[in-house]
Amino acid sequence: MDLGPYLLLASMEGAVQAAVLALTAVGLSLVFGVMRVVNVAHGEFFMLGAVLAWWIAHMVGGHPSIGFMVALIIAPVLTGLVASVIDLTILKRLNYDPESTIVATIGILYILQQLVLMTYGADARPVEAPFNLRFYTPWFGYSYYKLAVIAAAIAVLLGVWLVMSKTRIGLILRATQLDSEIAQAFGIAVNKVYAIVFGAGAALAALAAVLIVPIQQAHYLMGADPLLLSFIVVIIGGLGSLRGTVVAAVLIGMSDGIISVFFTPTLAKILATLLVALVLVFRPNGLFGARAA
């Protein structure tokens, strides 16, 4: 294929990845920003979203789009509830101590993963896309659904931005982020805020997973990759900065697509990984962050 169309295709693929990544990473970033904890189980919330989507779509039946739409709403809500419960029963009791939280969330990672293995099984199962349309350029064909994923992700991210900047909830979140003790002094129920934020972060990951599951399949080990990538994105973007996170997601998603044009795939992955590491080494606060990590 000529370089032009190839780059176009690689960019479109990169954009899809960036969209899903942005949603997942914003969830992680929100949790870090407000609560100052690193949630290693974040990828498992992503996985939970996909698995729940399969279950819901499977139970609803009828046209694939009905099941998918139901899943799009219910799966993130359920995942968010699970996360909130985890926050209230475990993380809260750890007083959000950074190291303990990392260890506890590694534990939660295994618990969620293995519970899914016990109930859902070890298979990768597909969820049917709400519509199955493609378009063809002279060089390649492409699925409309993938473009819809990009659009949906942009809409959700705008929603998150609106909530954070224009609503009272956003104000409370930002206040808690700046200084949780002072926020508490002003009558904000910080514990409640934390439970909601942890749930919302997980719900965003689950939402991303529901969007991607018609393209990929739901599998109990699928959480590792999104976790790794969103970690990278959150750090590159500057910890806790939502805007930085989105920019970094686009950067990482797109570059992953485009680097693969010029290098053999595994070499591309090695280079991309090293690049991220070196960025962090020389810009430890991320490309857009100002605070100390």
Binding site: I90, R93, L94, S100, T101, V103, A104, I106, G107, I108, L109, Y110, I111, L112, Q113, Q114, L115, L117, M118
Partner: peptide, 15 residues
């Protein structure tokens, strides 16, 4: 699902 117990142990340890 033996790693389930590994997970539970980790959580209990931290708690």
């Amino acid at each position: 699902a033996y790693m389930l117990i590994a997970g539970v142990v980790l959580v209990l340890l931290t708690l």
